[in-house]
Design a protein around this nucleic acid. Structure first.
Lengths: 356, 356
DNA sequence: TTGTAGGCGTTATCAT
DNA sequence: ATGATAACGCCTACAA
């Protein structure tokens, strides 16, 4: 029976370990080492608590000890194949990452961990390549998906609905159905910001966009809201007032200077980002323009930077940054696929501070 | 034979579709619909090209058409279980995300796509919870992992090495072996920055850290480098000169003001971030201090912001932001596990500009 | 050129 | 209380 203190099971394990080198141990090997069946191991190591409670402490200890000794870690692919659950949710976004997405990411993680889930980020760089990255979803890698603003609008969500249990999309356009939606009403909020500028007497309102063609970008709604308000007020839209500059501080400095150097310069400016707006404040200072009297500035994002800039920046953005309800909606659907689709309203607001 | 134009295979498919509702089709169903075997389908849809080339175009078309019609997407879990490859790499990081990580993310994606891989981000929020999130790695979800700076230092990488094929870690401490390493030599570079300040005559050098206890934080090396240089120069280390402030603009403003209001204020300042350093420049302007003559400032990160700030910010950081080689090292190891461990040197440098 | 069948590691349903 | 065993969906060596 005994060969130097090693059980038959241990020898089996050793043989495997030494042959395969550093191969990961399987449940079968743990079972052999513990001297019980794989079923019992499965129950102890990952099974449902109701089943585990029935097992004597002794058996449980043996299994756990063997697992520890062998460095057993489970194999997700096998578990997922069997359970049809990955316990993973994905957050689909487009870099660069701003403070907004950081908060969403961190809150996702908090809620996910509470549900026993983990979060993976799915950076989508080029729209053309999105398909390739999104296979993580279509091929069943995740139980749920959250699409950041702008990322779901062009997609056929029905396709994704077939391979994941829950979808939450930030979108002002999609219809509820395959996905639960979060509405920001970006266009309306931008309109409101411009209306505010019009009301305090501005007629020439500059615009710093993320790209050269604001009407085509993923942030299209921001520009459309700007146009809406001008049209409603009967103020002509001057394309010369729109410039790239929201994407980086550097571009914003250039864009703002160009606008102010023009023949008929604007008396107010809206930037698609707070970053750009803060750079514009600096340009105003350079030129000796008093903010907001000579030059009013509004940003987008309502970030912490807007609060601490000088003068404090009026900004359009979320009123609050608590996304836990949104993430809970995702998990509610993961657990209960047939509940009616939900639409959450998280409208952007104009947060008035000193700069406009 | 014919029942209204439907083949037996089609009827089988219909029955399944209507019963299961929106169940994802399996390869078996595609095979049935196409009237070929699963093996053939597998070859056509995902098999190796050498095998596919042997198949007549006709068969291939039938299969692809059936797959398209049914919306076949494959099942990753099954494929992974069989192939022992996920075609996924993970990028482990700690939010908040700065421009540095954005670049790394984007370049990862570029390289990964070229290899037929996708990238997932693995945000680690709390060190205590890291274990839970890292199961994505330990349980074999990914073929390779990149650890951002500071994230691998406390980990037992051997454990991860067993469940993923390749690990690249930014770390100045770990020994090569389980992981290929990227050395930044942060501590030395920070020392160099402080030496520069000493050389131009500064003796009291303020320090803005990410947290209140710089020697304990993930960014510990930055502070150690600062201490090193002072010790080498025989300049006493005054703990009152170190303050939190690098994490956000807001904190930096507070920290810098406190330092300058103190009884024996510093004549120079190092901030663990460019963000904090730029805020300090603003405080200097508030106080009418000339930069760099009255007050010298150095940041960390060498970001684009440092280049465009006024005055342009001297900063410690990477000399270049091309990470493709690093990512290629990861893929090289995925393909060839037994190659010798590599250590890449990507030292930080002091980029001298106007502010110091 | 195409099909058959075994197995990847788990979980869950039965038996015992 | 514990153990056999049949799936989960896919890939691939081998057979035909």
């Amino acid at each position: 029976m005994s060969t130097g203190g090693l059980t038959a099971a241990d020898r089996l394990v050793n043989a495997f370990t030494m042959a395969g080198g550093k191969a990961r141990p399987t449940l079968r090997e743990v079972a052999a080492a513990a001297g019980v069946s794989v079923a019992t191991c499965s129950y102890v190591l990952s099974g449902r608590s109701d089943r585990v409670r029935q097992l004597p402490q002794d058996t449980q200890d043996k299994v756990r000890e063997a697992a520890r000794r062998l460095g057993y870690a489970g194999n997700t692919a096998a578990r997922v194949l069997r359970r049809q659950r990955t316990e993973l949710i994905a957050l689909v976004y487009a870099p660069p990452v701003g403070p907004w997405l950081d908060r969403l990411t961190m809150q996702c993680e908090d809620v996910a961990v509470a549900h026993g889930y983990s979060v993976i980020g799915l950076p989508i760089r080029h729209a053309e390549r999105a398909e390739h990255s999104l296979r993580v979803i279509t091929q069943g890698y995740v139980d749920g998906v959250i699409f950041a603003p702008g990322l779901a609008d062009g997609l056929d969500l029905d396709r994704f609905a077939r391979s994941t249990r829950a979808i939450v999309a930030f979108s002002d356009y999609l219809e509820p159905g395959p996905a639960d939606l979060v509405r920001n009403q970006v266009r309306a909020a931008m309109g409101e910001a411009v209306e505010h500028l019009l009301k305090i007497g501005h007629r020439r309102i500059g615009y710093l966009a993320h790209t050269g063609r604001p009407a085509d970008a993923g942030t299209r709604d921001r520009y459309l809201g700007y146009q809406d308000a001008l049209e409603r007020a009967g103020v002509p839209i001057d394309p010369a007032l729109a410039r790239p500059g929201a994407a980086s501080r550097e571009e914003a400095l250039v864009g703002a200077r160009e606008l102010l150097d023009a023949a008929d310069p604007p008396t107010a400016l809206i930037s698609e980002s707070d970053r750009g707006a803060i750079a514009a404040l600096q340009v105003a200072r350079e030129r000796g323009l008093a903010v907001p009297d000579d030059f009013a500035v509004i940003g987008v994002g309502n970030t912490q930077e807007a609060v601490v800039s000088f003068p404090a920046l009026t900004s359009v953005g979320m009123a609050q940054f608590d996304f836990t309800e949104i993430v809970e909606v995702l998990f509610a659907r993961i657990d209960e696929p047939d509940r009616p689709p939900r639409v959450l309203d998280l409208p952007w607001v104009l947060d008035r501070r000193a700069s406009a």
